[in-house]
Design a protein around this nucleic acid. Structure first.
Lengths: 135, 135
DNA sequence: ACAAAATATGAAGAGTGGTTCATATATTCA
DNA sequence: TGAATATATGAACCACTCTTCATATTTTGT
C-alpha cells in the first residue's frame, strides 16, 4: 500500500481504485486493526435488527414477563395477526433470541437465555432515561 | 370488554372489531400489563435499528478504539464514501449514540457515553459466542 | 472577496423489511 | 377417515432504508 504524506494530511491509493483522504492516518490505522471482520459485523447487525421492531420487542417483553407463551396468546398480547406473529417469531428464533417447544398442536415460545434480558436492560437504561442533545 | 370462556379456550371481543383467540388468558393479561407503551417501544426499536447496520457498527467500533475521529478518517476506516458516512453519523447522532465537536472545518465524532460499549459487549457476548440451535 | 476543503443535505434509485392473504403442515377429536 | 385447531410458509404489496450524485454550508488561506 502506497502512502503519501503532505503536511498532516495523507492520501492512500487503495488497490487500483479511488483515492482516500484522511487527516489522522494513525487513528485510521488504529481503528482498522480493531474492526470486526465483515462476517461478524453482518452477524451482529442482523441480531440487532431482530430487536429493531416494536412488535418483536413486544413479544420479547411478553415472554420475559409471562414465561412460555403460545403463538395465539402472543398475537393477542401484541394485538397482531397470528400469521404476522408467527413470521416475527421465526426471525427471533433464527436470531437465537427465543426457543420453542411443541406440545400437541400448540407451540410454546420462551426467551432463549438470560443475556436477552440483560441486553434490553442496558439498552433501556441508556436510551429511555438518557435522551440527551444531538450535538 | 366482553369475555367468553369455553373449556380452557377464551375469546375476547376487543372493541367492535375482530375476535381474538387465546389459550392462557391469565398469561396474556400478565404480559399485557408489562408491555412498553407504544411510544417507548418505538423509541427503543429505533435505537436498536441504529445498531443494525454493519457500516454503523464499524463506525462505532472505530470510535471506541481510536477515540475522536473526523468524518473523512471514519470514511477511510470503514471504506465508505464520505457522504454515506456523514449520513450514517447523522443517524447515530440523532439516536444519541455519538456526539460531535467542530474544530475549524473538521467535525470530530466520539461515542456519546459508556453505555454504548457495555451494550455492544453484552451483544457480542451473547451472539458471537453463542450460536445455538434454532428450535 | 475568492477558491479550496470538510462536512451536510436533498432527491432518486435499488434493495430490504413487515404485513396480509391464501395455502400447507401437523395434531387432535369424533 | 374427516373436520377442526394451531402454527408455518410463500408470494405480493407497500413502506422504509441505504447509497449515490449533485449541491449547499461553513471555514480557511491567499
Amino acid at each position: 500500500m502506497l502512502i503519501v504524506v503532505t503536511d498532516n494530511v495523507s492520501s492512500v491509493a487503495a488497490g487500483d481504485a479511488c483515492e482516500v483522504r484522511m487527516i489522522h492516518p494513525d487513528r485510521v490505522d488504529l481503528a482498522r486493526e480493531s474492526l470486526l471482520d465483515p462476517e461478524d459485523a453482518a452477524l451482529l447487525a442482523d441480531r440487532f435488527k431482530s430487536l429493531s421492531d416494536p412488535g418483536r420487542l413486544g413479544i420479547i417483553y411478553s415472554l420475559l414477563e409471562a414465561g412460555e407463551m403460545c403463538v395465539c396468546d402472543l398475537a393477542a398480547t401484541v394485538e397482531a395477526s397470528e400469521s404476522a406473529t408467527s413470521h416475527q417469531l421465526r426471525q427471533l428464533r433464527m436470531a437465537g433470541l427465543v426457543r420453542s417447544r411443541k406440545e400437541g398442536r400448540t407451540v410454546y415460545y420462551r426467551i432463549a437465555d438470560t443475556h436477552v434480558r440483560l441486553l434490553l436492560d442496558v439498552a433501556v437504561e441508556h436510551y429511555l432515561h438518557h435522551h440527551g442533545d444531538t450535538r
